[in-house]
Design a protein around this nucleic acid. Structure first.
Lengths: 196, 196
DNA sequence: GTCTATACCTCGATAGAC
DNA sequence: GTCTATCGAGGTATAGAC
């Protein structure tokens, strides 16, 4: 609401930043590049965002918000099986929905580091919450490793350039399948052999 | 051999660099920091390494060498099952052996980016080779996603600060277990329930 | 409220003295 | 083998034009 010209420049700036970040990495993208791409000066960029970290945070914000929601929704479930199922499906959906952003996150700690120092005390809380739900209360080392591999594997695969040519639907199906297998949840599709 | 004083300074420099990289990330570590930690000037550092990228490469070199050997050894096997088993076990071993380095790799594209531009044409070849062996010839999308999740999941979990307190032996066992389950290879230990 | 001009400091990197 | 001096670029910061 109140989408004035200020908001417009801000939005264009964020779109441009995401594109440049994807191409050159966060730390490989200078404020000068962003300014040039927008046709303004560095100081103009500095007017909208006080620091470069603020830009990276704003770029990541949609993904972070969805993740926040997901954790809250999952934690609200009563049965642990439901929590795990909801978290897995929600996480895969999120990874698909924000593929470009996830690719950045997975390959660029410039983003992560920038986020860590703001938000609700950083990104770490989310990871902790996700892992906590997936690995259950009082988890064994096996459960912790399992949850970790599941989450990081899904995120990395989702953001991987190697799999970029897979369509959203197909990638979503496969990631869900792998996740279910790792977490010991029943699958809903035919048991396609995975090592042909 | 010929461990002259030059080698000594070089070695100290690399140890210091790895420590600082781990603490502040590659791009978060300036040559000034390294020089200060060694008690010399920036230019002195430049005597031993022509660029900062050369330092990151030298820091990563032991891990890259092991990975190179592993790929060659796996590719030399005749039966595909043997290839997969050898690659999985070797990869887990490598991740354990170079935990600190893997943590850096997993969380810092500064390293990856630095390596990409040197070595035998970059890091990408390795990933491609690993994925190729794990996903088999003419792989389905399911097999590709599966291999991707396996490799990235193991690497990320191995380098994760969250699991840093797990001992090498235990982490090794669990990572192998997860990998075997994902790749459909027989396990050698009791089927501990993973979701307690 | 939005942007330009300009300056400051640190960084990676080079040249050359000792 | 190590140092001083210096450079261009990057992030940050302020003053002031419109």
């Amino acid at each position: 609401m109140t989408a004035g010209p200020a908001e417009d420049t801000r939005t264009r700036l964020l779109q441009t930043a995401l594109r440049l970040f994807t191409e050159h990495g966060v730390e490989g993208t200078s404020l000068q590049m962003i300014a040039d791409a927008l046709g303004v000066t560095k100081a103009a960029v500095y007017y909208h965002f006080k620091t470069k970290a603020e830009i990276t945070e704003a770029v990541a914000e949609p993904g972070v918000r969805d993740l926040d929601e997901l954790v809250l929704r999952a934690a609200a479930q009563k049965r642990r099986g439901t929590q795990v199922d909801l978290l897995l499906e929600g996480f895969v959906d999120l990874v698909i929905r924000h593929r470009a952003l996830v690719a950045l996150f997975s390959s660029d700690p410039g983003l992560v580091r920038a986020i860590e120092k703001s938000a609700h005390g950083g990104m770490e809380g989310f990871g902790q919450a996700l892992l906590g739900i997936l690995s259950g209360p009082d988890p064994t080392p096996a459960a912790r490793v399992n949850a970790m591999v599941t989450l990081t594997g899904i995120a990395m695969a989702g953001g991987s350039p190697d799999l970029a040519r897979l369509g959203d639907e197909e990638l979503r199906t496969e990631l869900l399948d792998v996740g279910r297998r790792l977490l010991g949840r029943p699958r809903r599709r035919g048991l396609a052999s995975v090592t042909p």
